[in-house]
Simulated scan of single mutants.
Amino acid sequence: MDTVGRVAVIIEDDADIRNLLEAVLTQAGFEVHAVGTGPDGVEAVRRYRPIVTTLDISLPGIDGFEVARQIRRFSHTYLIMLSARTEEIDTLMGLDSGADDYLTKPFRPRELRARIEAMLRRPRGGLPPPDPAPRPDPPDPVSTTSPTRPTGRAESSASVPEDEGWLTHNGLRIHAEMRLTELDGKPLELTRSEFDLLLAIVQGRRRVVSKEELALLLRGEPGSGGYVSDADRRTVEVHLANLRRKLNDHVVSPRYLQTVRGVGYRLAMPRGQ
């Protein structure tokens, strides 16, 4: 089946919630395919190639974390995890397994729609290349506009000058237009959200980038001054924790991401200064 446009897959074992999600996404203009198990969900994503997938964590057989990891091996679908679990470790595990967003149950249908529309306004990319699939990926139905490449030369107090579009700092290299990241000469695999956050902090150099700014960036509303909830700030914190782990960065003596307590984050000082 060759599909284009707004296609969504729902992976949810609770029939009532599955029906609610199907109604919400259908009203939002999606062609919806709903399944009740993890293996069926993986197959549905492979078959229908959705732009958005909602995924319950507590599935029979294999849980949502493993389903997300399997999906990420071949698909760049926007992945939203839904769960009644509210512990920070669950959010962390969900985002770490490849989810773009994490929403707790019960959720408000309007909030779900708003989060989906915000993701669709963000550029795709920033994910590791998928494994070969039986068929090639379809043309990207959402905007492929790349983030604006920083102009000029980086301040010497924060990072070395750009090299053909690359921003570099303490062995880290990040390219906005190609959406590539390297650490000490090796490719670094980041999720879409992790890449966007890291790029914003590197571009900000020694300027403190607030959690509110970063949360709005993730929602596709940079500079809008919109409302930011505690859940939005927590999502930023979880993504930054994942980033630190992948960068092998220490909170006490950071090499890349320095926390400004109560405000946000900025790029750490270069080595040797």
Rank of each mutant, 00 (worst) to 15 (best):
P150C: 01
E221M: 00
E66T: 15
T54M: 03
T235V: 07
M1V: 11
P161M: 02
S143F: 07
G126Q: 04
Q258N: 11
L183K: 06
F107D: 05
N242G: 15
I116A: 02
T54H: 02
P109F: 01
L214M: 13
R72Y: 12
P187H: 00
S97N: 11
L267D: 06
R255M: 11
I89L: 10
L240K: 03
D63C: 14
G262T: 12
E162I: 15
M178E: 14
H76T: 07
G226M: 00
V35Y: 08
L197C: 11
G225N: 00
I201P: 01
L55D: 04
R47F: 01
Q70H: 10
F30Y: 13
R122Y: 01
T53C: 13
D56Q: 12
K105H: 07
W166F: 09
L214E: 02
L127T: 12
R113E: 05
V236P: 06
K186W: 10
V35L: 00
R124Q: 09
N170R: 01
D137S: 13
D13Y: 12
K105P: 02
G125W: 14
T148W: 08
D96P: 09
L198W: 07
I174Y: 13
R47I: 03
G226N: 05
I17S: 05
E111Y: 15
V202D: 08
Q203R: 11
T37I: 08
E194K: 10
Y102R: 08
R261S: 06
A118K: 00
D232L: 07
R245M: 05
A34T: 06
V263Y: 03
L92Q: 14
T151G: 09
G5D: 03
V260E: 03
W166I: 02
T77C: 13
R173T: 07
V238S: 05
L21N: 08
P270N: 00
G38P: 09
D131W: 14
S159R: 15
A176R: 11
R49G: 04
R113L: 05
G126N: 09
P109Q: 07
D140P: 14
D63S: 12
L79H: 05
G5F: 02
K211W: 04
L120N: 06
S58M: 08
D14T: 13
A158P: 07
P222H: 00
E162C: 15
I51F: 03
R179K: 15
E22W: 12
V45I: 13
V32Y: 09
M81D: 03
